[in-house]
């Protein structure tokens, strides 16, 4: 490489760091960058030089849902990244999942007495809840599982149940569904002691497979007065498909 070529490249490194290279010039430079560690170091030098300009940007508070999504995307997996795990851990996770979902079995069992009585009057068998196809474990700030949210395959109906005692508190717990890139949607208040089932808004049902996040915020009794979370978010997690 001649001195002139070297100088040209360093100049381009500066322009690339500044962001003024576009189109073919930018693509050619990036192709070169991928293969040239010395050029990458030059770009980094330029970024170090002009980077402090960022301090001049205005502070604009991002909506809370951005942090929820960051936290959901970086949270330690409870289950869901199972394929990458050794078999033993995968089994342990399956058992945990089964334990979580065994609620449905217990609720069915509890229902047997009532159902038997009911069956004396009607011939129809009690309808068991559909098997959940999606589940989200909502963790607290210490990454401890606190709620299990499950959804049926069509994503029309969700159920939320406590996994651990959440403590007595005058505040109401409100459940929110947060679609990717969207605003939180209220799914109503939770019951600290038992399962609640809710219909998911139709437009969310269609996106059930694309990583809807759930969060629980503390709200005044009766729920958020604004239609958006107003209190701290206590629990959150992302809905994942349950492998069959």
């Amino acid at each position: 490489m001649t001195d002139a070529e070297r100088e040209e490249l360093e100049q381009q490194a500066g322009e690339y760091a500044l962001g003024t290279l576009a189109g073919d010039e930018r693509r050619r430079f990036e192709a070169r960058l991928a293969a040239d560690p010395a050029l990458r170091a030059q770009v980094e030098d330029w970024q170090r030089r002009i980077g402090p300009l960022a301090e001049g940007a205005p502070a604009v508070e991002p909506p809370p849902s951005v942090w929820w999504r960051i936290e959901a995307a970086t949270a330690p997996p409870v289950y869901g990244a199972g394929d990458a795990l050794p078999l033993r851990q995968r089994i342990a996770r399956s058992l945990y999942l089964w334990w979580c979902l065994s609620f449905w079995r217990w609720s069915a069992l509890v229902g047997v007495g009532a159902a038997a009585a009911l069956a004396l009057y009607i011939a129809a068998a009690p309808v068991a809840p559909p098997a959940p196809a999606y589940a989200a474990v909502l963790n607290d700030a210490q990454a401890k599982p606190a709620w299990l949210v499950t959804a049926d395959r069509a994503g029309r109906r969700i159920a939320a149940q406590p996994l651990a005692a959440t403590g007595a508190d005058a505040r109401a717990l409100e459940l929110w569904a947060i679609p990717d890139g969207g605003k939180p949607r209220s799914l109503g208040l939770l019951d600290r002691a038992s399962v609640v089932a809710r219909d998911l808004p139709a437009d969310l049902a269609g996106r059930i497979g694309s990583g809807v996040a759930f969060a629980v915020s503390a709200e005044p009794p009766g729920g958020s007065p604004t239609g958006q979370p107003t209190g701290p978010v206590l629990y959150q997690g992302v809905l994942l498909a349950i492998a069959r």
Partner: peptide, 19 residues
């Protein structure tokens, strides 16, 4: 976060993209 959001917003001029 607020400063970095401001930076992204300034470049993109669309809140959804900046988020």
């Amino acid at each position: 976060g607020a400063k970095l959001f401001g930076l992204a917003l300034r470049i993109l001029r669309r809140r959804d993209w900046a988020e």
